[in-house]
């Protein structure tokens, strides 16, 4: 049985904001299936009582003081923007959350 279906890949692509093509869906579904079957091997390891490692260095409590540092200028901030207007980043209409 496949580890991942074409529909699941389509759903994941939507979640990831990737407008994948039908051909890509076909290809990725097959490739991801191979990859997943292989990486699923982590499940063979008995690790119930093993704590997970999220950070490889055992550091804790790294903080900065609440002291301002220089910001970018508005021009610098917007320098890479695909579109900007009156000091703000311009984006197309956002899908309405309320309707």
């Amino acid at each position: 049985m496949a580890a991942i279906s074409r529909e699941e890949v389509a759903h994941l692509a939507r979640l990831s904001r990737l407008a994948v093509t039908e051909q890509e869906l076909d290809r990725f579904a097959g490739q991801l299936d191979v990859i997943l079957q292989s990486v699923a091997r982590v499940g063979e390891v008995a690790a119930e009582d093993i704590p997970p490692t999220s950070h490889s260095v055992p550091l804790t409590n790294v903080y900065r003081d609440d002291v301002p540092t220089p910001s970018l200028t508005q021009d610098e901030a917007l320098s890479g923007a695909p579109d900007a207007f009156e000091g703000r980043f311009r984006v197309p209409r956002i899908l309405d959350e309320e309707d």
Binding site: A77, G87, R88, R90, V91, R93, E98
Partner: peptide, 12 residues
């Protein structure tokens, strides 16, 4: 309002 807007402007 977001409804009916044609574009949005973002300030971070």
């Amino acid at each position: 309002r977001i409804h009916g807007a044609t574009e949005s402007l973002v300030d971070y």
